[in-house]
Design a protein around this nucleic acid. Structure first.
Length: 389
DNA sequence: AATCCGCGCAACCGCCTTGGC
DNA sequence: AGCCAAGGCGGTTGCGCGGAT
């Protein structure tokens, strides 16, 4: 008679009783070829229908969740096998920068790839590559960048220098809108924008991922070459088309902002003259156009961070924006030379997010750009993509 | 040859959302 | 409105393999 230890017995029990469906005894661990065959045979003839009933119908001692996972991640006929291509890798990085760890969303941009596969590839390869390149895989910003709260001389110079040159414009969807479309991106999230100008700001309801516009766009990043341009353009269209999911009868207008502003004493020789202020605004159905605090006497604003609660966004004209995107790209190209020279001068590269003035009540800010019914705010291309999602 | 160690990947776990009742 | 089951998703685990020692 074979005697097994208590721990071995416990392990056996764990192998037979599934945590999520403890009523039935199910097999766990790796799938055998026979099990795969049974599952494929059943699904190809009957479809998967209700996953929970599949194990019984297909003659498998697995839980429904396990069957679903096995099919989606491994057995599906339309799965792409093999390692990721460079283009796929680039797409993952680009979309991850916008969406974060939303693997299922990212996988939608990679035909034949699963969220699990993308996640594993990210964790085993891309993450390390980014770190090796000195980039934070979570934020995609350079590692060891001094924070806004730190007293970094060059950063301060940069902010002050741009104070007079950077402009920012926001448009607010009209409340009279009757039909709107929101994006498929998860639930409400926060859109974080760092600006370094003398701006006012408001809040918008946008379904958007958490993202942070870099304080200083890496000059090499966008656009680095024509292929990247093309790639980004495709990506933008792809993301935007995926953002269109369903309509709502009424635009949910519930802006909420938290504004963090850093002031510097007018006397630049003072090393400790930094002041920070945080202002929160919560309103329902009313524009907030003055979220930032007034400059204290003797101080000038050097940095401002706005967190916007963006729980929904008007995407009615998503398809029409393909055309706008082309205009956007033309603008980018036209301003590219200027931007590059600006960078050489220590100024920020400028990108524009076109917003249709015909559908928006405009909140004007100093230096806002309004041209041919479009209103522009300065964003990097990839953040422009995020803006549109 | 044996052992150790790191890595990649398949699978699991637990939480959240959704839809039906 | 509340409950429950099913499905979806992101984080985590652990097995197997290959290279290093």
């Amino acid at each position: 008679m074979q005697v097994i230890s208590e721990s071995e017995l416990d392990q056996l029990n764990r192998n037979m009783v599934h945590q999520c469906c403890s009523k039935q005894k199910v097999k766990r661990g790796l799938w055998s070829p026979e099990e795969d065959e049974k599952l494929i045979k059943y699904i190809t003839t009957h479809g998967h229908g209700s996953w929970s009933s599949i194990p019984k119908l297909a003659g498998l001692q697995r839980c429904g969740k396990s069957c679903r996972l096995r099919w989606i991640n491994y057995l599906r006929p339309d799965l792409k096998k093999g390692s990721f291509s460079e283009e796929e890798e680039r797409t993952i990085i680009d979309v991850h920068r916008i969406l974060g760890n939303r693997w299922a969303q990212i996988a939608k941009h990679l035909p034949g790839r699963t969220d699990n596969e993308v996640k594993n590839f990210w964790n085993s390869c891309i993450k390390k590559k980014l770190i090796a390149q000195g980039l934070d895989p979570n934020t995609h910003n350079l590692l060891n960048i001094p924070s806004s709260k730190s007293n970094n001389t060059s950063a301060k110079k940069y902010y002050i220098h741009n104070k007079t040159t950077t402009n920012f414009s926001i448009a607010q969807p009209k409340r009279s809108t009757t039909t709107t479309t929101t994006t498929s991106i998860s639930t409400s999230s926060v859109f974080s924008v760092n600006s370094h100008s003398n701006i006012s700001h408001t809040s918008m309801n946008i379904k958007a991922p958490i993202l942070t516009l870099p304080s200083v766009s890496p000059p090499h990043t966008y656009p680095s070459n024509p292929d990247d341009d093309h790639h980004l353009l495709q990506l933008e269209s792809s993301i935007m088309s995926n953002c269109t999911t369903h309509d709502h009868d009424q635009y949910d207008h519930n802006p909420s902002t938290v504004c963090n502003t850093t002031f510097q004493e007018n006397n630049p020789t003072s090393s400790s003259a930094l002041m920070e202020s945080t202002v929160s605004h919560h309103s329902k159905g009313k524009l907030q156009s003055s979220g930032s605090p007034l400059n204290p006497p003797g101080f000038e604003r050097i940095e401002e961070t706005c967190l916007w609660d963006i729980s929904s966004f008007d995407h009615r004209k998503v398809n029409e924006r393909d055309e706008i995107l082309l205009q956007q790209k033309q603008l980018e190209k036209a301003s590219d030379e200027v931007a590059r020279s600006n960078i050489n001068d220590g100024q920020n590269m400028e990108y524009y997010a076109p917003l249709e003035t015909s559908n928006f009540d405009l909140i004007d800010f100093p230096g806002s750009t309004v041209d041919s019914g479009l209103m522009y705010c300065h964003l990097s291309p990839i953040d422009y993509v995020a803006w549109n999602c």
